[in-house]
Nucleic acid binder design. Sequence first.
DNA 1: GGCTGCATGACACCAAGTGACATCACTTCA
DNA 2: TGAAGTGATGTCACTTGGTGTCATGCAGCC
Lengths: 193, 193
Amino acid sequence: MSRWKPDAAGRLAKAAIELFAEQGYEATTVAEIAERAGLTKRTFFRYYADKREVLFGGAQELENCWLAGMDAAPEDADPMAVVAAGFGPISDLFADRHPFARLRAGIVAENPDLQERELIKLHRLTGVLQHALAKRGVSDHAAALAAQAGVAVFHVAFGRWTRREAPTSLGALMDDSLDELRSVVTATATATT
Amino acid sequence: MSRWKPDAAGRLAKAAIELFAEQGYEATTVAEIAERAGLTKRTFFRYYADKREVLFGGAQELENCWLAGMDAAPEDADPMAVVAAGFGPISDLFADRHPFARLRAGIVAENPDLQERELIKLHRLTGVLQHALAKRGVSDHAAALAAQAGVAVFHVAFGRWTRREAPTSLGALMDDSLDELRSVVTATATATT
DNA sequence: GGCTGCATGACACCAAGTGACATCACTTCA
DNA sequence: TGAAGTGATGTCACTTGGTGTCATGCAGCC
């Protein structure tokens, strides 16, 4: 019918973000999003399983990127170092997406449903990292803890990154957060008993 | 119009569980649930915010119960002991609900949406416990860790409890899980570095 | 009796999501 | 060159979750 247009998924995501930012998540309808993208509601659902998912398309990419980074870590690295080996690639992945991430974070922050979905994504990510560590021969407990810690560090750093107007390096923020975590944990360890 | 019937919420929950068990969660419609309870779809949504919520009505009760148990802990108890002080009351709370819990667990296990919701509930619960600990003067880090650990112990023990056909004591299972956690953590601590 | 408050029913409505089929552009191959 | 195939999209009808609104019946109360 109408001429073919490239990157339908991308156009849908862009339209969605814009509309969510303009009118709020709940107030915008999937049909509106599709219309702004020059497509149809039906087509929207061919690219995204549900309305929320349009904001979480990056999750898979993040996962792959992190895993790839971990694969590149030396065989004998300790678990936390393996996890941290993903920080660099992740930083690169998001390097040019600061404006998008900022907008997105604001939208998610205002809707409980979206926060639910984000929580799930982080949870799944943790599971994936844990599994990857386990396949490297890391013990179950250590893998679980390192994965938890890694995702927590990413989450904190990413939050700080999106809250800044001027885009700093996400990688630096992740390194900082990891340092903080280390000092907190060791401090607790000394103070306990 | 029709004669007044008591415990509408309870009847809805009962009808829902039955139907979910018979036909699956997705395959049963809110209208069906309401009809079996002798009510209307509209009335269902007056008692439960959404279809999933009918399976999570106990969350608030659990939360209150746990907090009450923690309140009863001695002023100078260490954080983990405070959290564990809720185990007794929780065990009592669920004492006569084993069949229900068993059915419910089976249903939740088969539907991703319901698992999402359960994850959120646990997450919220963690936050509440953490806050309660903080109000007692526990440091933020310790509160976060103790809350996480407590909820994890509850989750594991509850899973084991529901998987048993004969209802054992939930309290005993929680105590066991806590012991396991302790040994795992100390073992890791010694084995590390 | 009449008033008030509460739980519910009845009804219309919106938006998310899906299934089935048509259509258009583009490719391939005889 | 043209028929057949393929992939992305449109069209349309439909189900279901969820809500707003108003009517109705039952209770207690003065």
